[in-house]
Structure formats: structure tokens, C-alpha cells
């Protein structure tokens, strides 16, 4: 790892200022992606701005909305009684990320800012129609993920929290990579105030909605309604799974998720 200046600001405002003042700064959340990247010298940042003390952790419920601070760990989401009772599918998704030690450090803000094509949270953000709040604006789920490791965030923009409207029902099914537990394909199906939503992660460059499935489920919310629907996307193909296999898995995982709540 190259050397850098380390900062631990005590507020979100100070964090944004430290990041702005740096020649080539980067935010540090759980470090589960950033530290391996720095260790392998895939990045060389002049300044690392640790968000640990910036007051961005915490989970709360306000009526029909669950709010999760950017620095909330996967473990805190998985074990939160508020999340477990309001959106059990979200608690289960967080509890299925990686391993216990990754969940003890990794955060929701770091996961969605990183926008790994195989990450789990993007399926929840998109499938549950969440809003990503930053130090500058509110970004709708549909506008947030823009490509492989690409998001709508501008340089230095800080995610402060994510708000999830509580759905009537939701379920997440994933076909996990056996070594890392990243999603080869993961599908979040939900009955929301905004209609039926089906969001897919792992399959393509970034998470996307399977609109053909949403339409079929609007008429008949059952796994059988998905028979014969093949979702078109720019599927990834790699050592873990071919594009054709991923296309097939989208159908299987969607049926599992829908079957759980139908």
C-alpha cells in the first residue's frame, strides 16, 4: 500500500471538506473493497477520509419509511429489529453478504457507492424503490446505478443515508458464488406502493428492473405467471457463469422470490 494522509473528521460536513481539500482523496467506509484495492496498488490516493466518526451510522423507522445511515454495517442491518419487522427481505439480504467479518465492517454506503455488478444491495435499492440521500441532493433508485462500478455520484459527493419505503411484501433470492457469496444472480421481488417491482443484480453491468416480469406479475402475482418469460439484458459472461446461464438463473431466482411471498 502506498502511503497517504489519514483523516477522521467528526461530521459529514467536515468529511466533505477534507475530501475537497485533498489532491486526490477517497472516502473510507468499512474498507472491505477500498483497502484490498489500495493494498494491491490498484489505486494511489493522496488522502483517505475515514467516515467512522462522521455520525453516519444508525437505523430508524418513521411510519412507512426505514432510514439506514450510510455507515451502518451489513451486520447492523441484518440484526436490526426494526428492519427485521418492517422489511425482513432486506435484513435477510444484508445477513447473506459475504461472511460475518465482512458484515461486521462493510457498510451500505460503501456497497452502493462501489456499485459492484455482483453486489446484493443494488437489488434492494432498486427493487424496493429506495432513495439515496447525499450531502448535495436526493437520488432516486432508478437514477443511481449507471453502469459497471458507475453511479450518479459526482466527484466527492457523500452518501449520508438511504431511505426505503416499507413494502407490502418483498423477498430476495440469490444464487451465490460459493467462495465469496457475491451474487451470480440475485433477484428482489416486491409489492410496493408504487406497484410490483422486480430488480436483478449480478447478471449484467449494473442492477436493472425486469419490466416484462413486473407486467406479468401485475396481472397474476404467482411464480407460474413468470413461465416462459426470458428477460433481455446485456448479460455478463465470466468464469463463474455464462451469459446464457445467467439469463436462465434470472427466471429461476425470480420464481423463488415471488414464490416466497405469493
Amino acid at each position: 500500500m502506498y502511503d497517504f494522509n489519514y483523516h477522521r473528521p467528526a461530521s459529514a460536513t467536515d468529511a466533505a471538506a477534507a475530501r475537497k481539500a485533498a489532491a486526490d482523496g477517497v472516502y473510507l467506509a468499512g474498507g472491505m473493497t477500498l483497502l484490498p484495492t489500495l493494498k494491491q496498488r490498484l489505486a494511489r490516493n493522496s488522502d483517505v477520509v475515514d467516515l467512522a466518526a462522521a455520525g453516519l451510522a444508525g437505523i430508524g423507522r418513521d411510519g412507512g419509511t426505514i432510514t439506514i445511515g450510510a455507515m451502518s454495517t451489513h451486520d447492523s442491518v441484518a440484526t436490526s429489529s426494526e428492519v427485521q419487522s418492517a422489511i425482513p427481505a432486506l435484513a435477510a439480504l444484508a445477513g447473506g453478504i459475504g461472511d460475518p467479518q465482512v458484515r461486521n465492517r462493510g457498510t451500505i454506503g460503501g456497497s452502493i457507492a462501489n456499485a459492484d455488478p455482483a453486489a446484493d444491495y443494488p437489488a434492494a435499492v432498486l427493487g424496493l424503490n429506495a432513495t439515496v440521500h447525499t450531502d448535495r441532493r436526493d437520488i432516486k433508485a432508478g437514477d443511481f446505478f449507471t453502469g459497471m462500478f458507475e453511479t450518479a455520484l459526482d466527484d466527492g459527493e457523500l452518501i449520508t443515508k438511504v431511505t426505503f419505503p416499507v413494502p407490502a411484501a418483498a423477498a430476495y433470492a440469490k444464487f451465490a458464488n460459493l467462495a465469496s457469496r457475491y451474487a451470480i444472480v440475485g433477484v428482489m421481488a416486491a409489492k410496493t406502493g408504487d406497484g410490483i417491482r422486480v430488480a436483478v443484480t449480478g447478471a449484467a453491468g449494473n442492477a436493472f428492473r425486469a419490466t416484462a416480469m413486473e407486467q406479468a406479475l401485475a396481472g397474476d402475482f404467482s411464480a407460474a405467471a413468470l413461465d416462459g418469460i426470458s428477460v433481455d439484458a446485456d448479460y455478463n459472461s465470466d468464469i463463474h457463469a455464462s451469459a446464457e446461464y445467467r439469463r436462465h438463473l434470472v427466471g429461476v431466482m425470480a420464481k423463488r422470490a415471488v414464490g416466497e411471498i405469493a
Binding site: L28, G31, M32, L35, V48, D50, P100, Q101, N104, R105
Partner: peptide
């Protein structure tokens, strides 16, 4: 009290 991978944490994060 929580288990973490010490190879993936900075000493300064443990302050």
C-alpha cells in the same frame, strides 16, 4: 467484541 479481519483494517481505524 466483534470479529474482524485485521489484514483489512488500518491500525488508525482501531483508534
Amino acid at each position: 467484541g466483534k470479529s474482524v479481519k485485521s489484514c483489512t483494517m488500518l491500525a488508525h481505524q482501531a483508534a
